[in-house]
């Protein structure tokens, strides 16, 4: 059984003449431990695919299962729990909470769990050390560089030890050097067994991935 499997996944926005087919009949199988890069021109459906995989956007038709769970058949609150337990999100522009410190941003997904504060902080400390942000725990996001903010976003995505990491243009707002460092971090995470699905515009980023999927006009053009 694949970790992620989609069958005939379609998504339409709008209706009538304004109807847009963002995704059409996408069939995918992603195995545990894979590092998938999703590429394609703007409007090809990359972000739509990522939001559907992320349990945030109901497909118009088709099926999607993760770890054998048909996620869109879950009640809304169970779907939220699924996102927390199975998925780690890394957004293009970091999307950190501006009024929370680095460590608070990192432990944010744990704030709704029963995990005691001390354990939360211990976990966050371990991850911050792993991604090289020790000593900056008490800083606010606007006191960090773009690369550091991206690392905080990665730490937040990893705090729950989710089986799947979804990343949307993780180097999109970074300079080349920092972007390479982040991709190297992704590579090492994948080498440790982390399943990653990454949407990117940059062909260089795909070098470290185990498989490339190209979308065009809502269809899989290359790689399945």
């Amino acid at each position: 059984m694949s970790l992620i499997e989609t069958k005939g996944l379609s998504k339409m926005y709008g209706s009538g003449e304004e109807r847009v087919n963002a995704l059409m009949g996408v069939n995918l199988r992603i195995e545990k431990g894979e590092f998938i890069s999703v590429m394609g021109p703007s409007g090809s459906g990359k972000s739509t695919l990522l939001t559907i995989l992320g349990g945030l956007n109901h497909p118009t038709s088709g099926e999607i299962t993760m770890d054998g769970i048909s996620i869109y058949e879950l009640p809304p609150e169970k779907l939220a729990d699924f996102r927390r337990e199975y998925l780690g999100f890394i957004f293009q522009s970091f999307q950190l909470i501006p009024y929370l410190t680095v460590i608070e941003n990192v432990v944010l997904p744990l704030s709704i769990t029963d995990i005691p504060n001390r354990e939360q902080m211990k976990k966050a400390g371990e991850i911050l050390e792993r991604i090289g942000l020790i000593g900056k725990e008490k800083r606010l996001p606007d006191q960090l560089s773009g690369g550091e903010q991206e690392r905080v976003a990665i730490a937040r995505a990893l705090i729950n030890s989710p089986p799947i990491l979804l990343a949307d243009e993780p180097t999109g707002n970074l300079d080349t050097k920092t972007g390479k460092e982040i991709i190297e971090l992704f590579k090492s995470l994948n080498q440790e067994g982390q399943t990653i699905v990454m949407v990117t515009h940059n062909p260089d980023n795909t070098r470290v991935s185990s498989r490339l999927i190209t979308l065009r006009d809502g269809r899989v053009e290359y790689g399945k």
């Binding site: 927390r84 998925l87 709704i112």
Partner: peptide
């Protein structure tokens, strides 16, 4: 709005 979107994406329930 954006912040609420982040909360929802990382698994916050509506009740949270």
């Amino acid at each position: 709005k954006r912040e609420i979107g982040i909360f929802r994406a990382i698994g916050f329930r509506k009740t949270h």
